[in-house]
Design a protein around this nucleic acid. Structure first.
Lengths: 212, 212
DNA sequence: CGATACTTTGAGTTTCTTCAACGATCGTGG
DNA sequence: CCACGATCGTTGAAGAAACTCAAAGTATCG
């Protein structure tokens, strides 16, 4: 959270095992510790990132400390591109995270891919608007768990990299409400909780109907 | 709302007075009546639109009828581009509306401009997430009125093309809450209401501090 | 001018939040 | 390896913001 040090960087050859969404060219891989800042609001937009391992949260703070997490990014997903010249959000590693880093040039040369990413990002945010704007706490959590599952190929056992506070700030709820809903879903056997961060989706259909 | 007829179309020469965001080429101008559908969820994405006059709402419906308005589009603004091949939202004219219509080809030839639009659309949706996710009713209305004002060059007298229901569905509130907050802002002399759809921003600074 | 749709206002209810306390987990150092 | 502190998560009780239901007021359109 308050880490000030630089991420560890290493140069990286083109033909790595990391899937680079069609954007080739040499790039760096940087490693971030849990809670370490990737970029801050106000920073110049000059890079684009792809999660190799770990997870990232992108968020905005209000002056009184309220926080809105705008997106989470898991392995394989790209982030860091924004409309203006400076970042309007913060990005932090949630857990120990490795990122493939792309410079401005390689991105500009692949505006076609970047367009697809931007359109997907818009769709994602609009989808999220629907959840936050018109769904109750249970529906939000259900949609969140399903989304996480789907983004990892529909796996049923989820390892949550993020805290209850992160989830709350993502869904526009409080940490207590998130916790209560998780407990309720567990009591109804819709999910099972090995521990707070390990969720088994026991009845995906039930979760789907809850999420609307 | 339930209009089924086709919009009135007319061919249109290239050098019109409408600002076309840098995208040239012959295109149509279509006129839509108040409430008329522009596209529906499931329709193929094959056009892109710019509002000439009037206003548009883009929204999604839940199975039980709850509605989330994702965006409003005013004169000069573009909409209709989405990530996939089919629309995931509905678009309707709010009032009598004239749209400049661009085909798929002209858009593909201007992916640079489209990228900027997509990034701006993503930014707008994320900005909106913050409002809906973490702000109270008064803050949401204040942010909404300021946004409308700013998008029209900072004018102080706003003509709202949309109903209280539209605003409620945009801000994740009910029509009654929207009405009560408007009344409260009027009573505090932050705004004046000539009628329900005509808002004068009397104290922009106050509105700004309310919106956070 | 009347019918219809939209908006406002009031009263009671619900959902979620706030505040508080307790329990669990994790990492560190003795 | 265990003890300790710190962080994270859960649970309960009371409160507040927004919602629902209801009715009256106002604008709009044919």
């Amino acid at each position: 959270m308050y880490a000030a040090s630089q991420p560890k960087e290493q140069s990286f050859p083109q033909s790595d095992s990391i899937a680079t969404a069609g954007i080739p060219g040499p790039h760096l891989v940087a490693t971030y510790r849990s809670g370490q800042e990737i970029y801050a609001e106000g920073d110049a937009v000059e890079k684009c990132y792809q999660v190799a391992t770990g997870a990232v949260r992108v968020y905005r703070l209000l002056s009184d400390g309220r926080r809105q997490v705008v997106s989470f990014h898991l392995a394989g997903e790209m982030f860091g591109f924004e409309a203006g010249a400076t970042h309007r959000f913060f990005a932090e590693a949630i857990t120990e995270t490795r990122l493939a880093v792309f410079g401005r040039r390689p991105m500009q040369e692949h505006s076609r891919e970047l367009l697809a990413l931007a359109l997907a990002g818009m769709a994602r945010a609009q989808e999220h608007l629907l959840v936050i704007g018109r769904q109750c706490a249970v529906e939000r959590i259900a949609a969140f768990l399903l989304d996480l599952s789907n983004r990892q190929g529909g796996i049923r056992q989820l390892r949550l990299p993020m805290s209850r506070q992160d989830i709350a700030d993502y869904l526009g709820l409080t940490i207590e409400t998130v916790s209560r809903v998780m407990t309720k879903l567990k009591d109804r056997s819709v999910i099972a909780l090995r521990d707070a961060r390990t969720v088994d989706i026991m009845r995906p259909d039930a979760l789907r109907s809850l999420s609307n």
